[in-house]
Design a protein around this nucleic acid. Structure first.
Length: 561
RNA sequence: UGCGGAAUUGUGUAAAGGUAGCACAACAGACUCUGACUCUGUAUGUGAGGGUUCGAAUCCUUCUUCCGCAACCA
């Protein structure tokens, strides 16, 4: 598939408000005049990346790329409760798969723990932070509300006392939750984040990297600006829900002794209809076996989309084209599918595969004869050549390509009608055979030997071309058809579990495919003629019985009529 | 009710006082050895009211609606 990098020159969107801000910042007289733009993508390693993260990745790495700057990858591992190395590796793999590179700029927030501790001490010494002994429930009680300021009884604790307690917190003298370190800011602020926020908490849990070295951990609001400043980040791009945290971000930048002054800019996170994007909800789906795993092809995770047949280029293109703004919005799933179709249509190899097979017998074709046709691999791309496909008296065709009594406007196979077998011959239907239940078991036709290659010498036109697989050489395959996981446009609105689509997966175990498809590479996508795009799935298939996941179906204008 | 954001066709996104454009979706037609693709065309939009201006999506003003925030999560 195409791995072409989408550069600003060939991107459809001209720019966004973030670009405008940055342009101002680096312009003469701007805040970062003459500085290289430096961004970062800071995932918490507590789960798998999904399409929503892909947008953030494209914004972070893409913005840096646009300004010829740099983008760091940083694991924001400040809360050991939920984090694990498993996720670190998966995250790196997914970002690489998308085609972004952080070179040697891979960091862990946990590497800055000593520095952060030092900076916290310094804050205490300058009377800007204090140790608080309010218990969580009390803290809530004392926080005040919309119109009443918070109360904080430990706020005026002497510096030496706070320092001593903070040291003892670090030394492990206190159990979890016993005390916290709080920044002394403004108890009456309308912004709750400024009402003396907790910046360090006690947590006696081994950290996936630092082990038991620490039992106190910095909070996001304290850690993030420090991490950014240490790494020389100029623009800290994050999602809208952190907008109310920006004053605190700036407070830390202002009051902590740091080597740089990054600027936080927020943008809207991605929403897609008929999908849930919350990590917690995705986790529930996995843990309760509603799906086969994080990489279930129905999942919006990057590993799921990959198994589904999504290409990196299609996802990047999607992220590029949905734009970046400050309005919360919900993009149509159809647009994601469109981006995939666009890429696959241009680049995927074509193959003939019969999903729901019925036998077609050419009564006037010699029983022992086999011939070979060279079939184009991609009509949009002649340079990828052709492949040999065998043809003989008995073929598999799609059950839906025959109707004993044709519907109106149906122009495939029915008694008396002619169709073209892709690249091979024009055949005329003569009848069919049915079992006791009335199901068609065999379709009969006569081929026109004069039409070899698919065109009749008399120039007569046939209205339809159907695909086929030689019964002599066909390989049996399993084909999985996926539909939306949810039945409603906005599963986030209700109890999303109640909205699961029971028909989101349909398995066809009897499909017939061209034999070479048995060796298809993992995650390679093909277009099965008139059936849609399919991705070879090696995860649970063998060459004798390959498995294909449908990436996305073709638009079918016949069905609409 | 406090603070902070945001409102452009069904959806997403452009237009830094000067033709409201693009993409997806929808519909109609043409083409076709994939009823796909491609191509052509159609319909639908500046949340509301006032103001400034020759001219307003854009500036001012009042209102309305929506989103986020009161974790020792990020």
């Amino acid at each position: 598939m195409s791995e072409e990098i989408i550069s600003p020159e060939n991107a459809e969107t001209s720019g966004n408000f973030i670009h405008t801000f940055i342009e101002e910042d680096i312009a003469p007289g701007g805040r970062y005049e003459g500085k290289k733009v430096h961004t970062r993508f800071p995932p918490e390693p507590n789960g798998y990346l999904h399409i929503g993260h892909a947008k953030a990745i494209c914004v972070d790495f893409g913005t840096a790329e646009r300004f010829n700057g740099l983008c760091n990858l940083r694991m924001d591992d400040t809360n050991p409760t939920k984090e694990d190395v498993e996720f670190v590796d998966a995250i790196k793999e997914d970002i690489q798969w998308l085609g972004f590179s952080w070179d040697d700029r891979f960091y862990y927030a946990s590497d800055y723990f000593p520095k952060m501790y030092e900076l916290a001490e310094d804050l205490i010494q300058r009377g800007l932070a204090y140790v608080c002994e309010l218990q969580p429930a009390q803290m809530r009680e004392y926080r005040g509300d919309l119109t009443h300021p918070a109360k904080s009884p430990y706020r005026d604790r002497p510096v030496e006392e706070s320092l001593d307690l903070f040291h003892r917190m670090k030394a492990g003298e206190f159990e979890d939750g016993r005390m916290t370190l709080r920044a002394k800011i403004d108890l009456a602020s309308g912004n709750f984040n400024m009402r003396d926020p907790v910046i360090y908490r006690i947590n006696h849990i081994p950290h996936h990297r630092t082990g038991n070295t620490w039992c106190i951990y910095p909070m996001y609001d304290f850690a993030q600006p420090i991490e950014d400043a240490i790494e020389g980040i100029t623009h800290s791009l994050c999602t809208l829900e952190f907008e109310a945290h920006r004053p605190l971000y700036d407070w830390v930048i202002e009051h902590v002794n740091l080597p740089a002054k990054p600027r936080q800019i927020e943008f809207a996170r991605l929403g897609i209809n008929n999908t849930v994007m919350s990590k917690r909800k995705l986790r529930t789906l996995v843990e309760n076996n509603y799906v086969s795993g994080w990489d279930d092809p129905r999942m919006p995770t990057l590993c799921g989309l990959r198994r589904r047949g999504y290409t990196p280029a299609s996802i990047r293109n999607f992220c590029e084209r949905i734009g970046v703004a400050k309005v919360n919005s919900t993009v149509d799933y159809a647009f994601l599918e469109h981006c995939l179709r666009e890429d696959l249509n241009a680049n995927a190899r074509r193959a003939m595969a019969v999903l729901d097979p019925v036998k077609l017998v050419l009564t006037n074709y010699p029983e022992d004869k086999t011939e070979t046709f060279d079939v184009e691999n991609n009509p949009e791309k002649p340079e990828v050549g052709t492949r040999p496909v065998s043809f003989s008296r008995e073929l598999w065709i799609e059950r839906e390509d025959f109707m004993e009594v044709p519907a109106k406007k149906y122009f495939r196979l029915f008694p008396g009608n002619e169709v073209r077998l892709k690249t091979a011959y024009i055949v005329k239907c003569t009848g069919c055979e049915k079992d006791e239940n009335g199901n068609v078991t065999t379709v009969y036709a006569e081929y026109d030997p004069q039409s070899r290659g698919g065109n009749a010498p008399d120039g007569r036109k046939v209205k339809s071309t159907i695909h086929w697989v030689d019964a002599k050489t066909a390989v049996n395959a399993e084909v999985r058809l996926y539909d939306s996981l949810f039945t409603v446009p906005d599963p986030e609105a209700g109890d999303y579990i109640d909205e699961l689509n029971p028909d989101s997966l349909k398995v066809l175990k009897n499909s017939k495919v061209e034999p070479w498809l048995a060796e298809a590479g993992k995650n390679e996508s093909f277009q099965f003629l008139r059936q849609g795009y399919f991705c070879a799935d090696n995860r649970d298939s063998s060459p004798e019985h390959p498995v294909f996941n449908r990436s996305v179906s073709l638009k079918d204008s016949f069905k609409k009529k």
